[in-house]
Simulated scan of single mutants.
Amino acid sequence: MFSPSFIQRILNVIPHNETYISQIKGLIIRHSDRPFSYEGIIQEPSICIVLTGEREVQLGDQCYQFNSQHYMFCPVNVPMCGEIKQATVNDPFLVMSLKIDIPMVQKILWGQTTLPISKNESKDGFGKWKLDQNLGQAFERLLLLHENPKDIDFLAPLVQQEIYYRLLTGEQGQKLKQMASIDSNTHKIARATEYLRQHLQEIVMIETLAALCGMSISSFHSHFKKITTMSPLQYQKSLRLMEAKRLIVQENRLASEAAFQVGYESASQFSREYKRKFGCCPKDEVKLRGKIIETRTL
């Protein structure tokens, strides 16, 4: 999808082997010339495009493969992990993530009467969509603004508006419209995922979440799983374990401290569930700190 000359221009203006937070609002670029895994991240509502290389994403029980032919659409906060299996100096891995600006999307919808929101919502949330030429070219223009940073403040919002317009008028535009509609199930479930993120230590009853979304318990459970691919209990468990991993790996916390901080009362239960998810006991993480692990959202 992206030409070698375009990739080279981007490589000339971004840092290598790190996660680069762009001057462009909501944009993050990750470069690596060696394989790495990413664990314990919460992907915010965003659009992600692999510019070169391949990316494996594990979301709940589902595994997705991404290259430059498709883009990843994430409508709500979701805990995920994955792996970049191949990357070299001559053939690096490069990916970009643009956090979705809901107010900007809403502004476009309010100004365009030809973009109605369907009452029939799609059955899933997370998406793997084909990257068409018009959308790809808009993202190219956005990324190439890094060659002239002084242009970013004025031009980036204009290009971002075009990107959202292309998405809204594309084949899967209804999913983005649902994100922007406060009455949609997607918007309501997004509220529930944010509540769980903010109340990580607490025991949260499903009745509380259903009431927050204005749904019956059965309807809430059904929509939550369709949109996040996980049940509310699985989702909260993933959030807790990923935050615990971050505390242990990045902040050098003891396993017992991390367990308590994310809401576990039983150390043995925490150890069992941690090992089941990450393949090693919490106390063994210190031995793995030399492994390349990406923990920033992307």
Rank of each mutant, 00 (worst) to 15 (best):
F2M: 09
I7C: 02
P15W: 06
H16Q: 14
H16P: 05
N17W: 03
T19D: 14
I21A: 06
I21P: 01
I24D: 03
I24Q: 03
G26F: 12
I28C: 03
R30N: 15
R30C: 04
R30E: 12
H31D: 06
D33T: 10
P35I: 11
E39K: 07
I42M: 06
V50Y: 11
G53M: 13
V57E: 11
F66K: 00
N67Y: 02
N67C: 09
S68F: 00
H70M: 00
M72R: 00
M72A: 01
C74S: 09
P75Q: 05
P75W: 14
P75N: 08
N77F: 07
P79E: 02
C81G: 12
Q86K: 15
A87E: 00
D91A: 14
D91S: 15
D91C: 11
L94F: 03
V95E: 00
L98N: 04
I100C: 05
V105I: 09
L109P: 02
Q112S: 10
T113M: 10
T114Y: 08
T114R: 14
L115P: 04
L115Y: 11
S118D: 13
K119P: 01
K123L: 14
K123T: 09
F126G: 01
G127D: 09
G136N: 10
E140R: 14
L143D: 00
L143T: 02
L145D: 06
E147P: 01
D151F: 08
P157F: 02
P157T: 01
I163Q: 06
Y165A: 10
L167A: 04
L167D: 04
L168V: 07
T169E: 10
G170T: 08
Q174E: 13
L176D: 02
L176N: 03
Q178T: 07
M179D: 03
M179Q: 14
S181W: 12
I182Y: 04
D183T: 14
T186Y: 13
H187I: 05
K188V: 03
R191A: 12
R191M: 09
A192S: 15
T193N: 08
L196E: 13
R197Q: 13
R197L: 08
Q198I: 05
L200S: 04
E202T: 06
A210E: 02
M215W: 02
I217Y: 04
H223Y: 12
K225R: 15
K226G: 02
T228I: 10
T229M: 12
S231H: 11
Q234C: 05
Y235I: 06
Y235D: 05
Y235P: 12
K237C: 09
S238A: 12
L241K: 01
R246T: 03
L247M: 15
V249K: 05
E251S: 13
N252Y: 12
R253H: 15
R253P: 00
A258E: 07
A259M: 14
F260Y: 12
Q261C: 10
V262N: 03
G263M: 11
G263C: 05
E265P: 00
A267F: 14
F278K: 01
F278V: 02
E285T: 08
E285L: 13
V286L: 14
L288T: 07
T295W: 06
T297H: 06
